[in-house]
Design a protein around this nucleic acid. Structure first.
Ligand SMILES: [Mn+2]
Ligand SMILES: [Mn+2]
Ligand SMILES: [Zn+2]
Ligand SMILES: [Zn+2]
Lengths: 141, 141
DNA sequence: CAATAGATTAGAACAATTCTAAAGAAGATT
DNA sequence: AATCTTCTTTAGAATTGTTCTAATCTATTG
């Protein structure tokens, strides 16, 4: 089982985790496999857990939460707040913004160089800008 | 008790609720008194409930939630999503954006005519833009 | 191989929110 | 005013997303 994750891609993923100060455990490697497989993704803890189950990966929901937060702290993921009920994690950590389909709970990336925010006032003294988030909420036409 | 809310400001507030299709009940009038008293405000259900208690207003938390949602549906309030753990309601329903102090959970208005978002791509077919939210997250300098 | 530090897990706990169903109040109809 | 109907309030239970606990397990180091 662990064997299949060694060599080639597996070892590279393991190295990536080690560099982030995280032990390359079976669960982390398998979740990383789902997360960083191909395209950029937006997913909730519950949806990743469900997907892992379907893929036959044995991992608890607590570990999914732990892993998502650890990856986020390590800069491998970023968290997106668009819905008060659920948080989303984004595999695209580059500069970009989002469309959000309220109904379906779906996020769509907008490239950071496509969109611009101008006229931001000086932040209150004692604070500085951490980041600027733009969410474009969509409804059915 | 209800007497004190009649006449002058009380009747105007009652009329406003009736126009919104809401019965001007004691709880709604008293909460409206807190919400639309003077300046624009950003508050959570819990914080409004606490404030009502301190003011000696007898109202349940369930009613605070009901009222906030009813006022929001009636267009008297708007909901702001900046923190996955808590939702905020905003008495400023005009076009504007926000600074958000992560640490303190405080929202600060940015006038809508001060800030501009350009380069928004065409939304996916079958959808249209409901609104554009900008949240500028602040950290201690 | 130990030994050790760190990771995983089931299930309990939590916080924010919503639901339920019973009692109360507002507006309409006599 | 008395009544009727509809909407509102409420306490408490329930639900949801998430975090915590503490026992077990595993990756890494010597
Ligand atoms: Mn919740
Ligand atoms: Mn929550
Ligand atoms: Zn994204
Ligand atoms: Zn505001």
């Amino acid at each position: 089982m662990a064997r299949k994750l060694r060599g080639k891609g597996g070892e590279k993923a393991a190295e990536r985790l080690r560099e982030a100060g995280l032990r390359p455990t079976r669960q982390r490697l398998e979740l990383a496999g789902l997360l960083f497989c191909d395209e950029d993704r937006h997913l909730s803890a519950e949806s990743l857990h469900a997907e892992a189950q379907e893929a036959g990966i044995k991992v608890s929901l607590a570990t999914v939460y732990n892993t998502l937060h650890q990856f986020t702290n390590a800069g491998l993921l970023r968290q997106v707040v668009v819905d008060a009920a659920r948080s989303y994690f984004d595999t695209n950590i580059g500069d970009h913004q989002h469309f959000y389909c309220e109904g379906e709970g779906r996020l769509i990336d907008i490239p950071g160089d496509a969109i611009a925010v101008s006229g931001v006032p000086t932040p209150p003294r004692g604070t500085e800008i951490d980041r600027v988030d733009v969410v474009i909420r969509l409804r059915r036409a």
